[in-house]
Design a protein around this nucleic acid. Structure first.
Lengths: 198, 198
DNA sequence: TGGCACCTGTACCATTCAGTACATTATTGA
DNA sequence: TCAATAATGTACTGAATGGTACAGGTGCCA
């Protein structure tokens, strides 16, 4: 019996892709073994809790990635404008310019949402709040910043849906470009900011 | 053996809810019989093609509803502003103010997309184009109208994702209100339209 | 060289899956 | 009244589902 992959952490990205493509219910153990090359023995050795534990581990890994590379910079980077531009660039890279779907979004739409409610809710809530932080730092009024952030986060999700529906990834890149304009415009003019229509 | 429901058309909405809640793969015949009250005998009598035919019929029904109540008015109603307001009101009603999910969007994210690619693609493409039509009719420049329409359609999808993820339907109603402002603002000022940042 | 913890493949389990076959019952129209 | 058709419940199929049990193999450290 040849030892194959070794590290549990190594297979998390593969697991993620399976859940992304098939959803939680559609991700059968057959699909998972095919993609990871691991048999049931290994799978249940690494994840005694079965599919549920696998999905939870994947969600945790995604959460950590976004927390580190997107949310935290939005909260702490001094130059808020640069933080927002970084967010957009990393979002574009992560979702492969619209060719990759958001696992958390997929889970949110399904009945699985209830099983991972805390993780799903927290992911989007922290994204929204971190972005609002950065917007306030570059001079947006607090009230508007919150709604602008929500609008941006939801636009990213919607763009992923539409890009896949139309089989046209440019929908996603076009949306990111629009968001950059929308979020970073008018930085110097406080009065325009106060009265501007979102 | 008592005859129960009778019309095939009567059970389409029920079928739709099952697919909406569980996705195509997750919608087992057990779920379907439970929701519709129809046994396998009746189900396969009405839909000899099985689940695939059921889903296709549901998609066709949804398509017809939107074509009639949303797309066509956007294209033909003389008062473009009223058409857009009607679209938003009917969208709000259809999605139960954010408590109901978009079946076409759910299908778009899953692997089922390929099986119903034509229906999924056409639904969103026609929505986008019909909305762009109305925007042009109220004075938006053609180039901007197309992108504004895409932005609106994708915002609706994203709002549904986010509303369900955060378990907060107000995300959806807030988004529709924002869209109304965004789409209908500045109607009289051509110069502002030409230079406005989307 | 030995032992031991860690991996891994295989066989197996009960359950559920979509779909089929068919006999039986309702309904309809002549 | 009586066939013909439409609708329905039931029993069944073979395959796939997630999960368990476990024996055996592998690498590592003493």
């Amino acid at each position: 019996m040849a030892r194959t992959v070794s590290e549990r952490a190594d297979i998390l990205p593969l697991l993620g892709e399976v859940f992304r493509e098939h959803g939680f219910e559609g991700a059968s153990l057959a699909h998972i073994t095919a993609r990871t090359g691991l048999g049931k023995g290994s799978l249940y050795h690494f994840f005694p809790g079965g599919k549920e534990e696998m999905a939870a581990a994947v969600l945790a890994e995604i959460d950590l990635w976004f927390e580190t590379n997107v949310f935290a910079p939005l909260r702490t980077e001094e130059d808020g404008g640069a933080a927002i531009r970084d967010m957009l660039a990393r979002t574009d890279a992560y979702f492969r310019s619209g060719r990759r779907v958001c696992l958390v979004g997929v889970f949110a739409l399904g009945e699985v949402r209830d099983r991972f409610a805390e993780a799903v809710q927290s992911y989007f809530a922290r994204w929204r709040e971190a972005l609002a932080d950065a917007l306030i730092r570059i001079g947006h009024p607090a009230a508007a910043a919150s709604e602008e952030a929500e609008d941006a986060v939801l636009a990213i999700q919607g763009a992923l849906v539409l890009a896949r529906a139309l089989d046209d990834a440019t929908v996603f890149t076009r949306t990111l470009a629009r968001l950059e304009r929308r979020l970073l415009q008018d930085l110097g003019d406080a009065r325009a900011l106060a009265t501007r229509i979102i």
